[in-house]
Amino acid sequence: MMSTRTTEIWVGVFVAAGLAALFMLAMKVSNLSALDEEDGFTIEARFEDASGLKVRSPVTMAGVRIGRVVAIEFDKQSLQAVVRMRIDRRYDTLPADSSASIYTAGLLGEKYVGLEPGAGADECEEAALEAELEGREPEPCEGGARVLRDGARIKITQGSLVLEKLIARFVSQFLESGGKKEAAQ
């Protein structure tokens, strides 16, 4: 019969090992350390086509993951897909004129949203101009450039490229040009 003390030490070792394993799964195997989206901010983009994109799909910029998709909805007025993304709080200086595209990782991989920075520099003037055209007060500008804030919307977007559509377009182009050549001959 093992003494109570030995038993308790062993149980302590066991629990510690179990927690260490959980810790390893969280830190080393998955990506707990990488992103802090819980208290990040949300931005929105509208796409003509968001097929293949899923809730929790990654959002990247310059190939680095900076957030993930939290909601995909259909807007019945514009007939577009509204994609809401949650971005890590650390990246709160993305230029407001960034564009968003839906890409595929590798040939058959999963879809993700890639952000590309816009010019950004004379943002303030542009915004003021835009506001003027639309007949409202220009928003306050800080540091000379506007940045993406919570609730902001990305205006320039490129939706999913669906393979069938691409092929169809390619084929029709090919046929068209073939027809022209024939006509030329």
Binding site: F14, A21, L22
Partner: peptide, 15 residues
């Protein structure tokens, strides 16, 4: 209580 700890250990040593 033991099961999740054992499963975590299993997965960790498996990795």
């Amino acid at each position: 209580l033991s099961m999740p700890l054992l499963a975590a250990i299993f997965s960790a040593v498996g990795v």
